[in-house]
Design a protein around this nucleic acid. Structure first.
Length: 961
DNA sequence: AACGTCACCTAC
DNA sequence: TAAGGTAGGTGACGTT
């Protein structure tokens, strides 16, 4: 039930000082390892170029303006000519948006005025760019037809709605004359609540453009009168669906799927060729929306086109101690690397520098005397390379905003056209994104049509829990590699030096562009995100710019459409929280016997499937009587809510979940068989996406500030969960007893949400596993499929400190050797503790669990503290950063506090602690151990918290035996 | 000393 | 306009 990958693993053996000294030495080596790596690329290129008979220059003279013949590799491959009458056009779609434009003759849809046109960007198997304009699709929403409505009134309704919408517009810049394109009667059913399959007449209202949906919805809601019908409020349905999602759902297109335009059905756009850069868009085509074929991501259609991924990094010459400001400080270098998705090395490596720069083997250096020229040329470089994906580190909130603002300050007017559609200016906007999950986050956005911005920092913030998110720390964590050693403070000095110092800066800059590419590859971001887009049906860009809900909405709409169900618009209002899961009161202690752990797999999804919980099966108050349902037709959940059984109607959510979970099983089975490592990655990405998607369905129903909250579902789910964990405890404890012939009386010593930890009274891991497997199977038989209890692991020994805080040796694959030491909730896995504390506790836990020597743990803790007291440990990295100032009067009766920081290569841990010489620091309110603080030894105080924990763990009576 | 509230981060 | 959920440990800090 946790979807975020945890990579905050403790600093295993990670005395930061030691590593620091070593790497510092490496950094001074010249040339750096990275430079060698770069030159290797060059050798590979030379071979390739010899075959092609072309080579790029190493250094371009200062002042030479950009042109495409600088390096022929920058451009996309030459596209073969396409004949729309005889060739199908097939491409993988990567992004999609819409714009308002003039209708194109011969295409379906409105012909007058501005019409919404979907624009789909993609790449062919050969790596050619496609921009597909899709015509004839208009936005719409539903309202229930008023009673007595017949088709005779459609015109009245349409005319009157059109008129009030027009009147409602404050200005009519686009000179719109028709707002309502069409009103039709359709047979639909409200998906919220079971009403006995009451299919009703709905009015499907098609508007001329997406932004007219909201006012039309509002006017109908507020009260609308037409023809002979009285003034009344109309409940809107599906009026809050993004236009892109609406289109994708209706045309069965999912994110990153392959799209085929059949011959004879599409038209090439005539482009007046003004410059040779035009060859980048061979594939500008028009097509009617019903003519496009979308291929489900199966078989051959799982492949990924050779997308171009560009990573870049900029350097600015900031003033001493001041963060660079775009209106004052220049951009001095931009490094870029371009790689094709699926290949292992970047095939373009460039640095644009201000002033001369000595050559770097393996990369092309372009020098400029004017910053304006540098910026403009880089923008042209970007447009020529025409990347499908742009990555980098914090490009979204730093590099791109800085470049745009700098270009504006220098009036480089041709700079801010960075998208794949010429003529659209890239503009910087502020965006606030807020969620309980991620807190408030202020972000900037830049529109860049057709290019997916894949800021690696944003990916990491979303998907990984890390102690530090600097590029250096992240690279070290995932790649065991670090940035080139250049301090921010000397960047300006390097720039103002000579071509050798600027070269050093360029190597640094190149590495900062290279690391994001490496990380992207290592973490398989592109593959995993594509699979997520395919599974949930949303565009790739949504996955980084939007929350979790949109993914469920997309799936829900797709499933609902098949059954003519429509989704109501609900007003979002926060309400009372509902009760969640049970955490069994732990029998705290140290267990030197095997503890078996049994888990319900995918608990919440399986509850929803087993009991058919859904919007469409919910019986609202009074429905049972109204519909005359008999007791066999429905169930009552532990929270008293009622749902019809699947024999009456199968719910949408259970269907979605079944599809997701069977697809996951299939993916896992294929994964086992697959030998091609690349296809394996795709499949693994898919099974992960499927799991995450299944788990977020429950959260969606409980999201009270959401698109379609339904607390009856979510509280029933947790209600069943509570009942099940309780029942599991009872079942296990009742069957596995001495009186039934087992070795001991089973006792559930702990459990959280979907798991129980059982002391079975056996003495070996093997027995604990065998009985565990049998027990899981036996307990499962008491529940409705697909609910299933599984044996997961044995802990031996097991240290249960508190609710959500425990540690143990983890046995799963073998009964003979433990797989790992598993720590949950303890300081070692928390990011709000300094590494000193985490490391010490980790070592102590190893002493306790692996060496089985609790006294040794205490001794170790004491030793470390004693070492600190006697300055036997290098504490040069421990520095007092701030004395919290208080006046003498304020000191009266209070303690002074000192803030202390432990510096590590990656970050600075701050701890405030009381500073009172010779006092005993005692937190007896919680019955903890105490230790005394010696005068003037600040670091001792830092360790007080450690001692408290170690003492609590080790000196408690239960650990002594 | 006892207790409540908050921020933070984790377990599911 | 957009935003997955609840349970719960722990330390800092303020009030009584």
């Amino acid at each position: 039930m946790d979807y975020k990958r945890r990579n905050g693993s403790p600093f295993v053996g990670g005395a930061s000082q030691a590593k620091r000294g070593k790497t510092a030495g490496e950094w001074q080596d010249s040339p750096s390892q990275f430079e060698e790596e770069l030159s290797m690329f060059d050798e590979a290129d030379l071979e390739a170029e010899e075959r092609e008979g072309e080579a790029g220059q190493d250094v371009i003279p200062v002042g030479d303006l950009f042109s495409t013949n600088i390096n022929p590799r920058w451009q996309r491959p030459q596209a073969s000519t396409v004949d729309p009458s005889s060739d199908n056009l097939v491409f993988q779609q990567t992004d999609l948006d819409y714009y308002l434009g003039n209708a194109v003759a011969g295409m379906p849809g409105q012909v007058q005025g501005k019409v919404p046109i979907i624009r789909m960007f993609g790449v062919t198997d050969k790596g050619n760019s496609v921009c597909c304009h899709i015509h004839g699709f208009a936005p719409y929403f539903y309202v229930p037809a008023p009673s007595g409505f017949t088709s005779d009134y459609l015109d009245d309704f349409k005319r009157e709605l059109n008129s009030v919408v027009l009147k409602d517009m404050r200005s009519n810049k686009d000179n719109i004359s028709v707002t309502v394109l069409a009103v039709d009667i359709t047979r639909k059913e409200n998906m919220y609540g079971y009403h006995g399959k009451r299919i009703m007449d709905f009015l499907r209202i098609t508007m001329a453009m997406p932004r007219l949906i909201a006012p039309a919805k509002r006017l109908l809601e507020q009260g609308f009168k037409f023809g002979p019908f009285p003034l009344q409020s109309y409940q809107p349905y599906e009026a809050n669906i993004d236009f892109e999602i609406r289109f994708m759902v209706d045309s069965d297109v999912v994110g990153c799927c392959w799209v085929e335009l059949p011959k004879g059905k599409y038209r090439l756009r005539e482009e007046k060729s003004t410059s040779n850069t035009d060859s980048e868009y061979p594939g500008k085509v028009d097509v009617g929306w019903t003519d496009l074929i979308s291929h489900p991501a199966e078989g051959d259609w799982q492949r990924i086109a050779p997308l171009r991924v560009l990573s870049f990094d900029i350097e600015c010459a900031g003033r001493k101690g001041i963060f660079p400001e775009p209106d004052k400080d220049p951009v001095i270098q931009i490094a870029s690397m371009v790689q094709r998705q699926g290949e292992t090395e970047p095939f373009i490596r460039t640095v644009f520098t201000l002033q001369s720069c000595a050559s770097i083997v393996g990369s092309q250096i372009l020098c400029f005397t004017q910053e304006r020229q540098l910026l403009q040329s880089w923008a042209e470089f970007l447009r020529t390379v025409d990347p499908d994906i742009i990555t980098g580190y914090n490009i979204q909130n730093f590099d791109f905003p800085f470049l745009l603002n700098r270009a504006a300050a220098l009036k480089v007017n041709l700079f801010p056209y960075l998208g794949r559609v010429r003529g659209i200016k890239s503009v910087l906007r502020d965006l606030n994104f807020q969620s309980k999950q991620m807190g408030r986050r202020e972000n900037k956005t830049i529109n860049m049509e057709g290019r997916v911005q894949f800021d690696l920092l944003q990916v990491l913030l979303r998907d990984y829990k890390l102690r530090s998110y600097t590029l250096n720390a992240v690279s070290f964590h995932f790649l065991q590699e670090q940035k080139e050693d250049v301090q921010h403070s000397i960047i300006s000095d390097l720039q103002n030096g000579n071509e050798q110092t600027r070269r050093r800066l360029a190597v640094y800059c190149l590495k900062d562009a290279y690391l994001p590419l490496r990380l992207l590859q290592k973490l398989m971001c592109v593959i995993n995100y594509m699979e997520m887009a395919r599974v949930t049906g949303v565009p790739l860009t949504y996955l980084l710019s939007r929350g979790q809900q949109i993914k469920v909405v997309s799936q829900l709409l797709r499933q609902a459409m098949k059954q003519d169900l429509v989704m109501p618009v609900v007003k979002t209002e926060g309400g009372e929280d509902y009760t969640g899961a049970t955490v069994i009161e732990p029998e705290k202690g140290y267990y030197s016997v095997p503890i078996t752990t049994l888990d319900f797999s995918s608990l919440y999804p399986s509850i929803m499937m087993a009991h058919n919980l859904c919007y469409t099966t919910l019986l609202q108050r009074g429905s049972v009587e109204k519909l005359g349902l008999s007791p066999e037709d429905f169930i009552k959940t532990p929270t008293g809510d009622q749902f019809v059984k699947s024999s009456v109607r199968k719910g949408l959510l259970p269907e979605i979940l079944e599809n997701l979970l069977t697809a996951r099983k299939r993916a896992k089975a294929e994964l086992k068989k697959e030998t091609d490592p690349f296809k394996k990655q795709v499949l693994d990405g898919r099974q992960l996406a499927l799991k995450i998607s299944a788990n977020s369905v429950y959260g969606f129903t409980g999201a009270q500030v959401g698109k379609l909250p339904c607390l009856e579902i979510s509280q029933s789910v947790t209600g069943f969960g509570r009942q099940m964990i309780e029942q599991t405890k009872q079942l296990v404890e009742s069957k596995y007893t001495i009186s039934s012939g087992y070795q001991g009386d089973a006792k559930v010593i702990y459990g959280d949400t979907d798991s129980v930890m059982v002391k079975l009274g056996v003495s070996t891991v093997r027995e604990a596993m065998e009985i565990g497997k049998e027990a899981a199977e036996w307990v499962s038989s008491h529940f409705t499929p697909p609910i299933k209890l599984e044996f997961e692991k044995v802990y031996f020994p097991y240290l249960l400190i508190n609710k959500k805080r425990y540690a143990g040796l983890y046995f799963s694959s073998s009964a003979d050797a433990h797989d790992k030491m598993d720590c949950k909730g303890i300081e070692t896995v928390r990011r709000d503790n300094c590494p000193l504390v985490a490391n010490l506790i980790n070592t102590c836990l190893q002493r306790i669990l692996i060496d089985r020597d609790p006294q040794g743990a205490v001794a170790h803790a004491k030793e470390v503290i004693s070492d600190l007291l006697c300055n036997r440990i290098d504490i040069s990295q421990l520095v007092i950063t701030k004395e919290l100032t208080r006046t003498a009067q304020e000191y009266a009766g209070k303690q002074a506090h000192v803030e202390l920081a432990e510096r590590t290569p990656f970050m600075c841990w701050r701890t405030t602690f009381p500073l009172t010489p010779n006092t005993t620091w005692n937190s007896s309110s919680r019955q903890r151990a105490s230790c005394s603080v010696s005068p003037n030894t600040h670091q001792t105080s830092l360790l007080c918290s450690v001692m408290v924990i170690i003492f609590r763990i080790c000196s408690d009576p239960w650990i002594q035996n």
